[in-house]
Simulated assay, not measured.
Amino acid sequence: MPPPEVSTEAVVSTAPDPGAPADHLGPVDEGNDAVDTDDTLDLRLPDELVALIAEESLTSADGAATADDGLLDQLAGWGPVPTSAGVFQLVPARTERDLPLISRWMNDPAVAAFWELEGSVSLTAAHLDAQLAGDGRSVPCLGVLGGVPMSYFEIYRADLDPLARHYPARPHDTGIHLLIGAVGDRGRGLGAVLLRAVADLVLDRRPACSRVVAEPDLRNTASISAFLNAGFRFSAELELPDKRAALMMRDRALRGLI
């Protein structure tokens, strides 16, 4: 479970509970327009990561067991999807490979305000390891856009998370936590683009899931706006242990209308 703050980021605690991903969606922009992808980020996808993405995709295609086989329907094999900002893919995180990058993002003040994982690399490592050592109900991922790792996601079973104690959960409800890493990628409409893409991935790849949920801090108005622009609806205010949150939902039945 992420540091103290739940939500879209999700519910967080310094020593994360594998079943409770980070509560915060970190800094997110409000727009939903097509994104200009001409800007060059300072981080290009290393050849090793390209190879690992291919390796993980092949492993999933071959039917090899993965940690989330039974709970998140082989997330590692969900594959890339087109978006208005470029081709996007969720790549399950590995501590030994991705910790420096994710820790750097967590130490950005705008991210730290909601994720509360700033400081030593060991804090981020503990947060990742708690999920990776669990039963697969929460999967930390890099969001790779156009070949560039530029965001961090946690896809989790909300119905198996402590969050389920605070709202009328349904079987297979799936939660999203998101942060956008680079300052240059914020304020460009990417938050809504990525949230819509990931919510669609969940609904397409998890036929038993009827709703995608998130619980951003009510103070995080940019995050809430991004969810609304991504086709989520505001459902309720939740009094969670570490914050007052907006319960956001994207319903399978409404996905073609919002």
Rank of each mutant, 00 (worst) to 15 (best):
T59V: 11
T59S: 15
A61R: 11
D62Q: 13
D62G: 01
G63F: 03
A64L: 12
A64F: 13
D69Q: 12
D69M: 12
D69R: 14
G70F: 11
G70E: 15
L71F: 12
L71Y: 09
D73H: 10
Q74C: 14
L75A: 08
A76F: 06
G77E: 08
W78Q: 09
G79W: 07
G79P: 12
V81G: 05
V81Q: 07
P82C: 02
P82A: 15
T83S: 09
S84P: 00
A85H: 03
A85T: 06
G86M: 05
V87Y: 00
L90N: 11
V91G: 00
V91S: 01
P92I: 00
A93P: 10
A93S: 14
A93N: 02
R94T: 07
R94Q: 14
T95M: 04
T95E: 12
T95H: 01
T95P: 00
T95C: 10
E96W: 03
L99A: 03
L99R: 02
P100H: 04
P100Q: 03
L101D: 05
S103I: 00
R104D: 15
R104E: 15
W105R: 01
M106C: 14
N107D: 13
N107V: 02
P109L: 06
A110I: 12
A110L: 15
A110V: 14
A113G: 01
W115H: 11
W115F: 13
W115L: 12
E116W: 08
E116A: 13
L117M: 11
E118M: 05
E118K: 06
E118R: 10
G119L: 01
G119C: 04
G119I: 06
G119S: 04
S120E: 15
S120K: 08
V121W: 02
S122Y: 01
L123F: 02
A126P: 01
D129I: 09
D129G: 00
A130V: 03
A130S: 14
A130C: 04
Q131D: 06
Q131N: 12
L132S: 11
L132H: 05
L132V: 05
A133N: 10
D135A: 15
D135G: 12
G136L: 09
G136S: 06
G136Y: 12
R137C: 11
R137Q: 10
V139Y: 06
P140D: 10
C141K: 05
C141V: 03
L142V: 01
G143E: 06
G143A: 03
G143R: 01
L145N: 09
G146A: 05
G146S: 11
G147P: 09
G147W: 10
V148T: 15
V148E: 13
P149G: 04
P149H: 06
P149A: 05
P149V: 04
M150N: 08
S151P: 00
F153M: 06
F153S: 02
E154W: 01
Y156D: 08
Y156W: 06
R157E: 10
R157N: 09
R157F: 10
A158Y: 07
A158K: 07
D159Q: 05
L160W: 11
L160D: 11
L160I: 02
L160S: 13
D161L: 08
P162D: 14
P162E: 14
P162L: 13
L163C: 08
L163I: 12
L163Q: 02
A164M: 04
A164F: 01
R165C: 06
H166F: 15
H166V: 12
H166C: 07
Y167V: 10
Y167T: 07
P168L: 03
P168N: 04
P168W: 07
A169N: 08
